[in-house]
Amino acid sequence: MTSDMSAIKIENITKTYEKGKVLALESISLDIKRGELFGLIGPDGAGKTSLFRILTTLLLADSGKATVEAFDVVKDLWDIRKISGYMPGRFSLYQDLTIEENLNFFATVFNTTVEENYHIIKEIYVQIEPFKNRRAGKLSGGMKQKLALCCALIHEPKVLFLDEPTTGVDPVSRKEFWEMLGRLKDRGITILVSTPYMDEASRCDRIALIQKGKIMDVDTLDHILEKNYQEILGVKAANRYDLVKAINQFDNLKSCFAFGGEQHVVLNDGFKSKDEFQQFLIEKGIENLEIRVVEPDIEDVFIKLMQENSND
């Protein structure tokens, strides 16, 4: 991949805190293409926010190199700030300014006006415009999120950095938010978005799975699912508590985790006898036992990669 195709290029970025004692990012490399909707998927403490802050020139890495639209995050910080929109994980607009005042403020800082770039935010802004005289501190979570996105977009950025925009948001609002991102992507804006909700991976062109400062895999969701395929048994019974206890006593068990209405069970490599497993559970007195083979989803894969990473 040539660098002129890249919107964000990250090479061996390492970041530590507390004089090297806490490793936040361990030699991270990523190449995010122009116009891509790229998801950084991982739990709290994985290093997502550190990476965002480095890319938005708010934090210096210990080592490594990163560019945004070919601008260096250390040397060219002022150029990067002009072309980037950043929505931090914690709400960071002015609580005692109104919706309208916040938006005007951000437009002015970036040397533009709300009128000039209204077309960019229109679709999102109309939803909060009726409350434009309300102070940001008095807004609901969903409205704050929309205002923050408008403020990050008002200077027509080339690259949008969204750090956990959907955390703590209910499934309906999350769905709407991702639909909004899809339309921003259609306009050619490169979007780097982080989320702890694994199911949102399906909304991204490509994803990186990040855990404890390390990237475990980078690819399209389909490829990641394919590469990491393993047979998973979906197991159900009348009494779940007893079922889990019984499963955990099985010798050839690799892992057993709850997934919705059933347990996802992985047996040890090479252990093919489902019948033996079933027989074992029946002998343990499990009633109404149902076992089926299920397609792994992104959480199954994340768990698998987490376990592989903690073993080595």
Binding site: G42, P43, D44, A46, E164, T167, G168, P196, M198, Q211, R240, Y241, V244, F257, A258, E299, F302, I303, M306, Q307
Partner: peptide
């Protein structure tokens, strides 16, 4: 369990059970 990794999230449910 907000923001918690998938394994920890499930281990937490073991505690709930």
């Amino acid at each position: 369990t907000g923001g918690v990794d998938p394994v920890t999230r499930r281990q937490f449910w073991d505690l709930i059970y």
